[in-house]
Design a binder for these strands. Structure first.
Lengths: 134, 134
DNA sequence: CGGAATCCCCGTGGATACTG
DNA sequence: CAGTATCCACGGGGATTCCG
């Protein structure tokens, strides 16, 4: 990512931010609260590599309970970010995949997760330093 | 953002994602859970436009309580993303601003918020359509 | 002004067990 | 296999009050 481009993105975001994103009734806020939960982000990220079945997601996203997994998947399907395909066989076989909208969101989202992965050491060190200072 | 570039970002994220971001003990996970709360994201975004005082943030980020504001600010300061400057005057004057690390995070974060702002209509429509179908 | 402290409610989220 | 249902604990989050 070039510096120029990042500046552009930031500028665009800024003009948008100063507009209405902070308003209590901003339409984006409601959707963000539903989709930007800690599990939903990881689930979306997991689906970037391709369609997954329920149990595959359960083992891939470590630490998530079946309840939260199904709950978040329902929310994501409702938001139009994830597609649910049911194969009418026995035993039943359900496959989840990203919709076009979901794939579009995956870009910025993965960039963010990537940032946390890359800067985790710096964050931990800063946190440890702060705790020691206090 | 060019398509090529987005593909690159996605590829980088993918290789990283398949590595360890999904592990339960991934160091990034803990920090993400602290920083990626619904208020912390808005607070960080609000600070992109420059330093803000406590009350300024309280009015800017609509709907946040003083408790959650101070709580999230403490967490952000601890994570090394926000700097807290105290002016020893009466009445006291505290100013919050982004650190270098925080400003770096603001890039991907604003991109994400920007996405939600831009695609809010599509999300709402998809949601309404899904609710009508069921 | 900028919080810290207290009380309290309710939603999130986990563990477990059950169903189609 | 892919969920749903039930119970339960914890912490998020609001309102209020008090402090430096």
């Amino acid at each position: 990512m070039t510096v120029t481009h990042q500046a552009e993105t930031l500028e665009t975001a800024r003009t948008l931010l100063t507009r209405d994103t902070f308003a209590r009734d901003c339409p984006g806020r409601a959707v963000m609260d539903q989709v930007m939960t800690r599990w939903a982000t990881l689930i979306l990220a997991a689906l970037v590599t391709g369609p997954h079945r329920f149990s595959a997601l359960a083992t891939r996203v470590e630490g998530v309970s079946q309840k939260m997994l199904s709950h978040n998947l329902k929310a994501l399907v409702r938001a139009g970010l994830v597609h649910r395909a049911v194969e009418p066989t026995v035993p039943p076989q359900v496959t989840y995949s990203l919709t076009a909208l979901g794939a579009d969101l995956a870009g910025p989202l993965c960039a963010l997760i990537h940032w946390f992965g890359a800067n985790a050491p710096a964050l931990q060190e800063a946190q440890a330093r702060h705790d020691a200072t206090r």
